[in-house]
């Protein structure tokens, strides 16, 4: 009875969780290999830095990254000096000063990433009414996570015969509803990688997805590392507790 019940309950939990996302109409993104998946996953530093470059040169024109601060970039393997330089290359609004005016100054590591638009309305006005969402949590905010993001960025195709694509929209294989307001953002050699890697669409999509996986879960490496230690400890402790339990109950059996 016990095993059957555990089996039923596990199946139920999985069925319920899975079923909640079985919304009709969307194509499931194919699974990809990511360096950060699995028990021992880590972020590939090269991919993170290339991905940051893609974000900075392509995506940042429209998409904010407001939850990330420049100082966080030390987490993708950049040095403190590199981070200071990157921050200083951005212009940040500050103030009011003693005259009561807002003023601009170069960025500091403690500043959050500069937003491309001051507010949602300005963003919509510049993008045909569509709002380019903030990307800090995008990997956690979409069903399919990293696999989905990669699929969308590489999923721009010609619309199948008979499907009408309105003005200003593009056809995408994996975007729910297939019509996306963002034109294909990545083009071959769109970015000249600092580490000289060839910038194919596939490469850039992978790199920027890895970078966004990091912005969404900067604690991932710590989490998995500590997780292994905690689980190992608990398994051993539980084993010891079982032995103690058997010893204490021995006389009653």
């Amino acid at each position: 009875m016990r095993k059957g019940l555990i089996g039923i309950l596990s199946a139920a939990v999985l069925a319920i969780s899975g079923a909640a996302y079985a919304a009709g109409g969307s194509v499931e993104a194919p699974a990809q290999n990511w360096s950060f998946k699995g028990l021992f996953g880590t972020f590939d530093r090269g991919a993170l830095q290339r991905g940051f470059q893609v974000y900075d040169e392509v995506c940042a024109a429209c998409h904010s990254l407001r939850l990330v601060a420049y100082r966080n970039l030390m987490g993708i393997g950049l040095t403190e000096d590199q981070v200071k330089k990157i921050a200083a290359s951005k212009t940040v609004m500050d103030g009011p000063n003693d005259e009561g005016e807002m003023f601009e100054r170069p960025g500091k590591p403690s500043d959050r990433f500069v937003k491309p638009f001051p507010n949602q309305q300005a963003a919509r006005a510049a993008n045909n009414g569509a709002f380019p969402p903030d990307l800090s949590l995008m990997v956690k905010a979409r069903v399919g996570g990293a696999d989905y993001l990669y699929a969308v960025m590489t999923g721009y195709k010609d619309a199948p015969k008979g499907t009408e694509v309105p003005e200003g929209m593009s056809y995408n294989q994996y975007f729910p509803g297939h019509l996306i307001a963002m034109a294909a953002p990545l083009a071959e050699d769109g970015v000249e990688y600092a580490d000289k890697t060839k910038a194919t669409v596939d490469q850039m999509a992978r790199d920027v997805t890895t970078f966004l996986a990091w912005t969404a879960e900067p604690e991932l490496e710590d989490r998995k590392r500590i997780g292994i230690k905690v689980l190992l400890f608990l398994i051993i402790l539980t084993g010891m507790l079982y032995a103690v339990k058997r010893k204490i109950w021995a006389d009653l059996h």
């Binding site: 028990l39 989490r223 998995k224 500590i226 997780g227 905690v230 689980l231 608990l234 398994i235 402790l237 539980t238 507790l241 079982y242 103690v244 339990k245 204490i248 109950w249 009653l252």
Partner: peptide
Amino acid sequence: YYTVKDLFGLGVFFVVFFWFVFY
């Protein structure tokens, strides 16, 4: 008897629970 049995059960629970928390 039951303090140790409860502790053991707690250990089993924690293994499953922290699996979710960390992974």
